[in-house]
Computed example of a mutant assay.
Amino acid sequence: LVGCVAVSDRIKGDAADAVRYLQQKMGAEVWMVTGDNTRVARSVASEVGITNVAAEALPGDKVTRIKSLQAKGKTVAMVGDGINDSPALSQADLGIAIGTGTDVAVESAGVVLMRDSLLDVITAFDLSRVTYKRIRLNFVWAFGFNATGIPIAAGVLMPAGIILPPWAAGLAMALSSVCVVCSSLLLNRYRRPDFATTSWGWVRED
């Protein structure tokens, strides 16, 4: 034996942190479905903390794996960047493509990450949850305001001598819309989760 040359793909530096956050903080079941051979796949999976591994998977195998998880009632998010990932990205409930990936993968995904960082997957989930909570808050506010204001504007309190002039009713309706818009604009203050350098825990930037 004169020499030996070994070649391997470099694991993303934030992969282990992203996987650990998904598993421990979000309770997600993380799978690694790859076309690489079994030995390489299990080696990479052990480094990043993934226990569910499906190696030597063709594009159709990835779709089949996603369908099997969906058949169990699970909501599946697929993260990929290659042409082979495109069918799986389309099949998943949520397809997430890395912005530096192929055009086919980007077109097949519902969400495109602009940076080549798996931590942005966490940011996408977190921002989606914050946005959904804001939508629910706005809906509850608008429903409560209208449920109270419309009967008053219609004269339900006239027997008690309380009458809302038309100009006041119009102003109240405009203020309701302004409040909802201002509430939505608070999303501009959103700060992505930031990985603490002193530990693996996550903190939100304020």
Rank of each mutant, 00 (worst) to 15 (best):
L1E: 11
G3T: 13
G3I: 06
A6M: 11
S8T: 14
R10G: 05
I11P: 03
A15F: 06
A15Y: 02
A16D: 10
D17R: 13
A18P: 04
L22M: 14
Q23W: 06
Q23S: 09
K25S: 14
G27S: 11
G27L: 09
G27R: 13
E29T: 14
E29R: 15
W31R: 02
V33Q: 02
V33C: 03
T34N: 03
G35D: 03
R39K: 13
R39G: 01
A41L: 05
R42V: 07
V44M: 06
V44G: 03
S46D: 13
E47D: 14
G49S: 09
N52E: 13
V53R: 00
A54K: 11
A55G: 05
A57D: 00
L58W: 14
L58R: 15
L58A: 09
G60F: 07
G60H: 08
K62S: 03
K62G: 00
R65E: 10
I66P: 02
L69Y: 04
Q70D: 08
G73W: 10
G73A: 12
A77R: 01
M78K: 03
D81G: 15
A88N: 01
Q91E: 15
Q91K: 11
D93R: 08
G95S: 05
I96H: 00
I98A: 01
G99N: 03
G101T: 08
T102H: 10
E107Q: 10
S108A: 15
S108N: 07
G110N: 12
V111K: 02
R115N: 07
L119F: 14
L119V: 09
D120V: 02
V121H: 03
V121P: 00
D126C: 07
S128T: 08
V130D: 01
V130H: 01
V130E: 04
T131M: 11
T131H: 04
Y132W: 13
K133R: 15
I135C: 06
I135A: 06
I135D: 06
R136D: 05
F139I: 14
V140G: 01
W141S: 04
F145L: 15
A147Q: 03
G149Y: 04
I150F: 04
P151H: 10
P151R: 12
I152V: 15
A154Y: 09
A154H: 08
G155V: 04
V156L: 14
L157Y: 06
P159S: 07
P159W: 11
G161S: 08
I162Y: 14
P166Y: 08
A168F: 12
A168V: 13
A169E: 05
M173S: 09
A174H: 07
S177Q: 13
C179V: 14
V180A: 04
V181T: 11
S184E: 02
S184R: 06
L186Q: 11
L186K: 15
L186Y: 02
L187M: 15
L187E: 05
N188A: 12
N188I: 01
D194S: 12
A196L: 09
T198Q: 10
V203E: 10
V203W: 04
R204H: 14
E205D: 12
E205W: 10
